[in-house]
Design a protein around this nucleic acid. Sequence first.
DNA 1: TAATTTTGCTAACACGTGTCAGCATAGAAG
DNA 2: CTTCTATGCTGACACGTGTTAGCAAAATTA
Lengths: 344, 344
Amino acid sequence: MTRRRVHSWDVANLAGVSRTTVSFVLNNVPGMRISADTRQRVLEAAKQLDYHPDASARRLVTGKTSILGYVERQSPEHALSDAFLPQVLRGVHDSAATYNFEVLFAPIPLELSKGRFSRLLQGHHVDGIILSGPRSDDQEVHQLIEANAPIVLQGHLPNMQVASVDVDNVKSAKMATSHLIRKGHTRIGMIVHSPEAFTAGEARLQGYQETLEEHGLSVDPDLIAFASFTSSSGEHAMRKLLKAIPRPTAVFISSDTVAIGAMQAVQELGYHIPQDLAIVGFDDIPMSVYLKPPLTTIHLPAYGIGWAAADLLIHLIDKDDALETNVLLDTELVVRESCGASRI
Amino acid sequence: MTRRRVHSWDVANLAGVSRTTVSFVLNNVPGMRISADTRQRVLEAAKQLDYHPDASARRLVTGKTSILGYVERQSPEHALSDAFLPQVLRGVHDSAATYNFEVLFAPIPLELSKGRFSRLLQGHHVDGIILSGPRSDDQEVHQLIEANAPIVLQGHLPNMQVASVDVDNVKSAKMATSHLIRKGHTRIGMIVHSPEAFTAGEARLQGYQETLEEHGLSVDPDLIAFASFTSSSGEHAMRKLLKAIPRPTAVFISSDTVAIGAMQAVQELGYHIPQDLAIVGFDDIPMSVYLKPPLTTIHLPAYGIGWAAADLLIHLIDKDDALETNVLLDTELVVRESCGASRI
DNA sequence: TAATTTTGCTAACACGTGTCAGCATAGAAG
DNA sequence: CTTCTATGCTGACACGTGTTAGCAAAATTA
């Protein structure tokens, strides 16, 4: 490994041409006439020497790093985002690789973000940023967005003109709710997690309500309960729902993590899932399939989210601005056992 | 954002000094006499302009990228490593940040690794590599190790002289086994997952056996079953174990994922955990706490593994070679309900 | 006063690449 | 034969920084 590094002039010497020609050949520069013979010689020399251009030198002269930063900025929902990070990151990477971009992993916690963003962007460590776990009260990110920095949100921030990739929450909630209706349920409750801090919760609630109305079912406030990000908050919410008269026969829960606690409450109260109560969750966390009974839920396309975010960001960096800047991805209903067989 | 980039000579001009002086001050170059007054002026100018040196230029001239690559190379055990990736990566990042290193996320699947390693190292995208999920049959990695490339394995590869960070599997298995013995069990079985491809399985089996012997208990081959990486293989293994006569009263399972399937088998056969059968797992995957009953298991210090790997790699890069190159981290027994109350 | 050392700073080079302007040579056109 | 154009290649500059060698002025010593 202490073997001297191979440079472009080594390739040039071996091929008997100038360094410039090597660059033209290896980068496939358009409009440059290179004879087939020379091109061949250069390619062979490069392969023989296992030449790879120095990334820093190339970046310095081109002004492009071809690196995008994946910045984590989560707060309480850590547990959820953690479960998806591997897939999202792989999506980001694979998409970026298509454009010969690399991915820098850079968590920047809210507390000690002191200058980290400047370092990343002004210091030219990355060409742009994918921001995971955006928060409305994040001053530093607001500044970046206003400065028109190349940023793509993984998620959503209301009243902000910024590119983003998210799941179509309204549509997804409609899928879940209408599935329960199709099963014959008419008393359908919902547990919404953290609608204030997390706009997705609100959107999912909206989808649920609209679907009920579209099917001529009334929206009963007693059948809507709120939770935070934790399982135990789901337990609490479910106990409240089950006091409603008449009892709901099905509940749509806007987060699988919350659903875990809710299911526990149901079973502790002596009810059976799905016979006494059908349940549909949201997220399809890896654990969902192992729950008892296995949870019917809305599958979050984590890999696709990562892919789309990187794709959008790179187009943004290259100033193909005319691009749709708010991507909404479709989800899928994964039917397992918790929603029960048809009631009809 | 189209605002012109700030360079070191901007700072120099504003402070009324040369670019060289700016560099000396900002990098705290030792042995350089700078008057307190000048130093102050430079620091203020830099802060006022929000100056951050261009990463590429600095890398080009110093020859150090100050980036380390986190390379994923997993195969079947994806599910397991995925559960820990977020924590490991955070550990890697935080440790690296201590040395002003960045972290590049670079999965390189076995199939299409065509030149990716060369690109990374020869192309000087990174100074070194942390390799997650090393496989003994990985030719490309063998070559890198023999070429003495700066690599740290996250895990272990037998008969290879290469730096690595792993958990003390023998010691951990002893903790698990002796805990069951302390609870009063004498018929203790074990399910080993994939000992052939995954050396950790073998080590855990060894720890189990030695502990039995140390306590004067015989090792009964009928009480040892093998599984792969999946839950369903655990189901199969457990069914086999429960046919032993007399039945084991406790089982140590070398993987939580496998334990999930095993527990399912136990309950399907009508036995109760932990009354009829106590269970201790290994890994402490996030899901373990939600199982029924919650799984007693060995906690894998994912964050610590990441931290240690980055620390080791950076020391290796800086040629502090005298460093211990095979780090073994301690684990912790997390007692929940599946191991039962004391039998004594 | 003259010689020497110390202090505080700077000019100039190097890192390895991409790329613009230009230069021979060969062929075509006049 | 001369002039022009296309072909195939190259010399030289630029990117922004770290760093070595060195220089003037001030301080110290002789």
